[in-house]
Design a protein around this nucleic acid. Sequence first.
DNA 1: ACCCAGGTGTGCAATAGTGGACAGAACTCA
DNA 2: TGAGTTCTGTCCACTATTGCACACCTGGGT
Lengths: 230, 230
Amino acid sequence: MGNGLIVSGKKSRMRRGRGGMDPANLLATDGKGRKIMHFRRRQLILSQGDPAQYVYYIEQGSVKLSVTSKSGREAVVGLLGAGDFFGERCLADARSNTYSASAATDCRVVRIDNRWMGQMLYRDRVFSDFFTSYLLARKARVEADLVDQLFNSSEKRLARALLVMAGYGKAGKPSEEVLPKVSQEMLASMIGTTRSRVSHFMNKFRKLGYVRYNGGIQVRNSLVNILLHE
Amino acid sequence: MGNGLIVSGKKSRMRRGRGGMDPANLLATDGKGRKIMHFRRRQLILSQGDPAQYVYYIEQGSVKLSVTSKSGREAVVGLLGAGDFFGERCLADARSNTYSASAATDCRVVRIDNRWMGQMLYRDRVFSDFFTSYLLARKARVEADLVDQLFNSSEKRLARALLVMAGYGKAGKPSEEVLPKVSQEMLASMIGTTRSRVSHFMNKFRKLGYVRYNGGIQVRNSLVNILLHE
DNA sequence: ACCCAGGTGTGCAATAGTGGACAGAACTCA
DNA sequence: TGAGTTCTGTCCACTATTGCACACCTGGGT
């Protein structure tokens, strides 16, 4: 995620604000207004409907954001990793959480006080810049997910979800590596379909040699073929 | 859209930055780094794939953001109105536009230079605050659209889209008013379905008395019944 | 070794959604 | 006013997707 906004044409030629620390490093330490916390896989971090007063920042591990409908079905809105924020909505209006968050792997997150974060954003230009960059990138990602949902079949959505998780197209990623544990159930609720459908396509992909099961799911680059096919 | 972030517990007790102007007013004027432009209904404002170097701010009217797939199908990612920004992705990375924007009604928009906007964000806390608020709100909206798409049927998605457009649930909205022109085609590509489906449901809604055609579409509050069912 | 919970493969009837096509209504705009 | 264009209502054969059910598999306790 390219940090730093474009400022007078040069990226990153800017003095430090009062805080004076690199935001990511700052957040990595305990201190006023922030607290480092650890969660185990499956543990609930925050719950849909609870009053919202903290912003969270992921240091390590991954976190699943999900929404449960009145009818009890669950949809996964995002699977976040190190460097992502969540719960940030409470900066703009103080209502309750619109989703639940739970640890998808053991993880370390920083729980940041609402107010402290507001002050940082106001005072520290570097911090504010860091956060704005994040918001822009993340918003773009959610938009891409929406578009995907709007015009792809579930088969393609599954293929795309797998590729994105495998870091396809990212620089410095060996790709072809084994994914962290994700159940078919979870994949299903990420792409808005049923588990039997996911199972069906996973087998199809396997038969075609696009993925392998090596203790976990191993996505091969050739899986993009599914997306290209008209 | 509740402007102003939460800062040390008080919303909006903050001195003006260098710019010294209310952001919305500032943008309403021509000046360095920004240019006021007018577009007629259906006119193209920016095109998917073009190099991106401007951020746009809508003064008046509404703008449609859409993406066209390789196969030529169009999906509408958002229908924006006064007070919304678009094209802001170029603040974080200078690639090309990921969507097209065209005027859904005659409209007045401010075309803002990339760099100037970056400077404003860096220098003017009030401006930066204004923009961050916007991003937070808009991101939440896109997430809500994604969730809707993930677990509602096309009938419900249509109902929801209509209600949102009619400003259902917003304070100070008389609601029950007639919507600006939207074709079934457009509704279809907003909610990811076909026009024949939209036509079908619109008639159903009409028969049930949930909407009326009074020169345009008039949404009655009772349309929420569609969402509550099940 | 045994059990158990969570995860997976498979099949199937019932539904929902697609992608055309076509005719008529409703709007431009010269 | 009339010709063109854009919208809308409606139909239909196909295809995709759901919602179950049930057997099996696998890893971790105990």
